[in-house]
Computed example of a mutant assay.
Amino acid sequence: MSHLNYIDLFGFSAALLTTIAFLPQLYKTWETKSADDVSLVMLILFITGLICWIIYGLKIHSIPILVANIVTFIFNFMILILKLSYNKKNNK
């Protein structure tokens, strides 16, 4: 990608919006110390899909796809870790 064009701006806009959409869930999970309302199966499926998007983004050399999906992966992986750790604490 030699220069940024308007199509890339749509890509970055989509990346920004879909990535920050997970911040409220991450914040709520952190604050309430509970992730009971978050489906474990959904998280695993979503994280697997993000890994596929990251591989795809690498193969087509798409910065918007890579940035969005790497950051979203980090957010969702954090939610997964919190869910598993809070479930352990609640089961003791």
Rank of each mutant, 00 (worst) to 15 (best):
F77I: 10
P64Y: 01
V67L: 13
H3P: 00
L26A: 15
I55C: 07
V67N: 06
S13V: 08
L84H: 01
S39K: 02
V38H: 01
S34T: 08
V71T: 10
L82Y: 08
K59I: 00
T19D: 11
F75A: 13
G49E: 06
S62Y: 03
P64M: 02
E31S: 15
L45D: 12
L16D: 05
C52F: 05
S85V: 08
L66S: 10
A68Q: 11
Y86A: 02
L58G: 03
N91P: 15
I7K: 07
N76G: 11
N5I: 05
Y56C: 00
L80G: 14
N76S: 14
L58S: 13
T19Q: 06
K88R: 15
D36N: 15
S34I: 02
K89M: 08
A21Y: 11
F73D: 00
F10N: 14
K33Q: 15
L58D: 01
F22Q: 09
A21S: 12
S34K: 09
K28H: 03
L82P: 01
L43E: 04
D8K: 05
L23N: 02
L45I: 14
T48A: 09
I7Y: 15
F75D: 08
G57E: 05
G57K: 13
T18Q: 06
L58C: 04
G11T: 13
Y56L: 02
D36M: 04
I63N: 01
T32V: 12
T19W: 12
W30R: 13
I47C: 14
H3I: 12
A21P: 04
N91M: 08
T19R: 04
L80F: 14
V41D: 12
H3R: 14
I79V: 15
K89A: 01
I60V: 14
L66P: 02
Y56R: 11
L80A: 06
T72N: 07
M42V: 07
L17Q: 06
I54G: 05
L4W: 05
A68M: 13
I79L: 10
K59L: 13
G11D: 09
K33N: 15
M1G: 11
I74S: 13
T72R: 11
M78T: 07
W53F: 05
K59P: 00
F10G: 12
L82F: 12
L9A: 13
Y6Q: 15
Y27R: 10
F22I: 01
M78G: 07
G11L: 11
T48E: 00
V38R: 00
L4Y: 07
K88P: 12
N91I: 04
I55H: 06
N76L: 09
V71C: 14
L4N: 04
N69C: 07
A68I: 05
S39V: 05
L17S: 03
L80H: 07
W30I: 07
I54T: 00
I65H: 09
C52A: 14
I74K: 12
H61K: 14
N69R: 14
K83R: 10
V71D: 01
A14R: 08
S39I: 03
L17Y: 03
K88H: 14
N87C: 06
H61W: 06
M42Y: 12
I20R: 00
K92T: 13
D8A: 12
Y56N: 08
M42G: 05
I60W: 00
I70P: 10
L43A: 10
A14W: 05
I74N: 04
E31N: 13
Q25H: 09
